[in-house]
Design a protein around this nucleic acid. Structure first.
Length: 880
DNA sequence: ACAACTCC
DNA sequence: GGAGTTGT
């Protein structure tokens, strides 16, 4: 049944397709789809499959495919943060745009790219303009499109398994407000994907309740006195911003003034060219759907369906010439590399900006991967060696680009990204472009003398600005003694990599795959109908709708949760539940570790991660591509997994980890006598806490009491709230509250320490760690109690987690610079927050372990001893 | 983009 | 509390 029939329309509607949305969705959903030569085709596949479905089922006469306009649009001029946390279009997706335009031209589908606006704005404008001439169906899934709904305009999302048709009636029944109030709703609730904060503490429920009575922000402002005080308090201070947010969400209805209905008319496709195009991207099933295609031997998928495929014969049948493919001008032309120049050369006048264009006229660029267009790195390095200071976006990236730079003395470098990170470790990114732009919007900086395109001068100004700020913030020595020296160490670790045992991986993977196949068959049989157990959505439907099980908790998105925690509460109620839990465990193992890791190993069977030193708010490192900091260790498969990581032949691995480093940092900072005493005497800290909490001798503590104390001890590092504790422990909220109260009563030093942190954070606006690292926490002064207590938890966690991060970074420096370890040819290979992994010739392994443990334990004197557990072995599992 | 899972 | 990766 066509949509026209379902909607009771007399005419075939005009279809307006939110193309950009489907490109991204296809790109994300089928990341792995690519042509056999590796060219990514995921988004193309999604779009053409969608269009074929539409053309086939709906037989439209008019349809427009919209893409987002390039570059900044009017929204960023209203609000600088708009979509600020959205990255540029990923390169594999960008490469599909030109082919997409060609294919659409062959298909006869008109494409519109609204200039300075987004696809949604074009859709809203044309829907409003044409809806009186013919009914409109918007094809898309973006929730903001809901504001376009009217009697003549419906919203349709055919992608995915369950297609969705939303009409005005559906919307009204659902929300109880008119579509025109949608932007007002979003302004209140916020939208993370558009970086619209909304009002903290106001969710969809509160906002809808409000808007049903007062349907616009204006009405809310007028009737503010009638709003109940708890809500009013949250809204009142942000009233002005709310209007800005609404403008961002509100789609424009006044653009594309010159577009007429005839621009939306489909033209007949060039079937042969289209078929060749689809085959060229290896979309063989799609190609075969085009009438006149050779039936092809084997596949029995859709035998005689081509009879329905009159779609391509739509309105005027004549096989007229296809519209010319979009100009084949280089759409994806890369932005020209920013010319750079950041060396402060000694000069009579003080300094001259360097120029860095070299003899051959090439220049340095600041791309994350490529620093050189054509420059000769050794020549450049020699040139830079004459400088007093060289500022670069990322020293680590530069050193990684060519070994020649490693010869330059470390103090020469000024790392712009690192400086910006240390000044505010919560900013989104520290790329040069972002930093440069920030200069021009910073009221404290006079950037009037430089032009935005002059990267050389911008870079130098940035270096001056950041360096002065580091000084003011007391961060200079952190850079000089810890963060900068760590950079070559991290790079060396990345380059060393860690070996894997390919055979161990293979046999483990085979075993897991076998178990998964059995489980999946079982699961589907138990469910009674085919479904994908990887999909939480489908699983929720089976569990909570079909089987009628009771859901425990919801996801932030409002759906019934199928999380491990929720599922474990259902254990025993249905055999499906246990299998799903088992399936999830194995599937995670397969998809995250067993499958991908062997494929990223180099020719010598070693995996090289990237350690990011500007990623976390607390000063920890992070690891990515692949992440080697979350390799399983617990559970029945942990050991086996770590046994897949091995030393090179003749070598051994040494694993050394700090015991309870965060609790020790806490003991040190708080000087709480009970903690100091426990650690000084090598006591079991959790048992000791339990003894204190339950008023008994440590020897009399029951295992469950120890477990509870352990949960509290950990919760405490995270700033702990009674809610989370009661959930984790499975106890009532007031019991948890009483528990916490008693805890602080017995450990008064902690209580005082926490108060002190919060007080100083309030006074200064930031907290600092052992090494002087800082984190800004403006929210700690917020009148919004939710925000304030979140900031309070972050304050506590940052000094503890960040302090531990400082210590292990010092240990890494000590290990990397230690002559004894160097003599034994021991090299660092991994850091996992409280653990260091070293690879060393078998003969020196024992000595290296002892040495490493000694260095780690002695690197920073705390009020309690730092204990280090260590071991060696051929595999990582063994070394533990 | 979200939900789920891994680690410390 | 802090991360990264996978799947849909």
């Amino acid at each position: 049944m066509t949509l026209a029939q379902r909607l009771g329309l007399a005419k075939t509607p005009l279809f307006l397709v939110d193309g950009s949305a489907y490109l991204y969705r296809g790109y994300h959903a089928f990341r792995d789809i690519a042509r056999s030569d590796g060219f990514p085709t995921s988004a193309l596949f999604m779009v053409f499959r969608l269009l074929f479905k539409l053309l086939k089922e709906q037989q439209p006469s008019h349809l427009i495919f919209f893409l987002d306009g390039k570059g900044p649009n009017f929204r960023s001029t209203i609000y600088a943060d708009y979509k600020a946390n959205r990255e540029a279009m990923p390169e594999p997706l960008a490469r599909q745009i030109e082919p997409l335009r060609q294919g659409l031209a062959l298909l006869g589908v008109p494409v519109i790219v609204p200039e300075g606006a987004e696809a949604d704005d074009g859709i809203a404008s044309l829907a409003a303009r044409f809806r009186d001439q013919m009914p409109v169906v918007i094809v898309g899934a973006d929730k903001d499109l809901k504001q376009c709904l009217s009697e003549q305009v419906a919203l349709y999302d055919p992608s995915g398994k369950a297609e969705r048709l939303t009409t005005l009636a559906d919307f009204t029944a659902d929300c109880g407000i008119t579509p025109a109030s949608w932007p007002d709703l979003q302004a209140l609730v916020g939208d993370t994907s558009d970086n619209i904060p909304g009002i903290p503490g106001i969710g969809p429920k509160t906002a809808l309740e409000l808007l049903r009575r007062l349907p616009t922000l204006e009405a809310v402002r007028e009737g503010l006195e009638t709003v109940k005080p708890t809500v009013r308090q949250k809204i009142a201070p942000a009233l002005a911003e709310l209007f800005t947010y609404r403008e961002l969400t509100r789609l424009r209805t006044d653009i594309l003034p010159d577009t007429t209905l005839s621009d939306a008319a489909l033209t007949p496709p060039d079937r042969d060219a289209l078929r060749a195009f689809l085959e060229g991207y290896e979309f063989r099933t799609l190609a075969r759907e085009i009438p006149g295609s050779p039936p092809e031997a084997a596949p029995k998928k859709e035998p005689a369906k081509s009879a329905q495929l009159s779609l391509f014969d739509a309105p005027g049948t004549a096989a007229s010439a296809p519209a010319a493919p979009a100009a084949s001008a280089p759409v994806a032309a890369q932005a020209p590399p920013a010319p750079v120049a950041l060396a402060d050369l000694p000069d009579a006048a003080g300094r001259a900006l360097a120029l860095v264009p070299l003899e051959n006229g090439s220049s340095l660029s600041f791309g994350p991967d490529e620093f050189f267009v054509a420059a000769d790195p050794p020549a450049l390095a020699a040139y830079l060696a004459r400088a007093k200071r060289v500022a670069v976006p990322s020293v680590k990236a530069l050193l990684a680009a060519h070994a020649a730079f490693a010869a330059l003395p470390l103090p020469l470098w000024f790392d712009l990204g690192l400086a910006a990170y240390l000044l505010n470790p919560e900013a989104r990114s520290y790329g040069f472009d972002r930093l440069r732009d920030s200069l021009f919007s910073d009221p404290a900086v006079d950037a009037s003398t430089i032009s935005p395109s002059d990267c050389a001068r911008a870079g130098a100004l940035l270096a001056d600005t950041l360096s002065a700020r580091l000084e003011t913030a007391g961060l200079t020595s952190l850079v000089a003694t810890l963060e900068l020296p760590l950079i070559p160490v991290l790079l060396a670790m990345e380059q060393a990599g860690i070996g894997i045992d390919r055979e161990a991986f293979a046999s483990f993977a085979t075993e897991v795959a076998g178990k998964l196949a059995v489980l999946e068959a079982d699961i589907v049989a138990l469910a009674g109908k085919p479904f994908n157990p990887r999909s939480s959505q489908q699983l929720g439907e089976i569990l909570y709708t079909d089987l009628g099980l009771k859901a425990h908790g919801k996801t932030p998105g409002g759906a019934a949760s199928t999380s491990q925690e929720a599922l474990e509460r259902l254990a025993g109620l249905h055999p499906l539940v246990d299998r799903i839990l088992e399936f999830r465990k194995l599937e995670k193992l397969r998809s995250t570790y067993l499958g991908p890791l062997p494929t990223v190993a180099d020719g010598r069977g070693r995996i090289h991660t990237t350690f990011n030193n500007m990623a976390t708010a607390t000063g920890r490192l992070s690891s990515s591509n692949p992440n080697l900091q979350n390799i399983p260790i617990r559970g029945e498969f942990g050991r086996r997994m770590r046994d897949c990581f091995i030393a090179a032949p003749g070598n051994k691995l040494v694993a050394a980890d700090y015991s309870q480093i965060e609790l020790r940092v806490l003991a040190h900072l708080s000087r709480e006598p009970a903690l100091l005493d426990a650690f000084a005497n090598g006591a079991d800290i959790h048992a000791r806490t339990a003894a204190l909490l339950f008023d008994k001798e440590q020897a009399a503590v029951a295992p469950d009491e120890r477990r509870q104390a352990k949960t509290i001890n950990f919760g405490l590092l995270y700033g702990m709230g009674p809610q989370k504790l009661s959930r984790d422990l499975g106890i009532k909220l007031d019991v948890a509250k009483a528990f916490i109260a008693r805890y602080f009563e017995r450990l008064p030093g902690l209580s005082a320490f926490y108060d002190g942190i919060v007080e100083s954070a309030k006074a200064q606006g930031f907290v600092t760690t052992l090494a002087g690292r800082r984190r800004l926490l403006p929210d700690i002064r917020s009148a919004n109690s939710q925000l304030a207590s979140q900031a309070r938890r972050q304050a506590i966690n940052t000094v503890v987690q960040g302090g531990a991060a400082d210590i292990i970074k010092m240990a890494m420096l000590a290990a990397a610079g230690d002559p004894e370890l160097a003599r034994g040819q021991a090299t660092l290979v991994l850091q996992i927050h409280d653990e260091l992994l070293l690879e060393t010739p078998g003969e020196t392994a024992q000595a290296a372990g002892e040495r490493l443990a000694g260095l780690m334990a002695g690197v920073y004197p705390l009020a309690v001893p730092l204990e280090v557990d260590w071991g060696t072995g051929h595999t990582w599992g063994e070394a533990h």
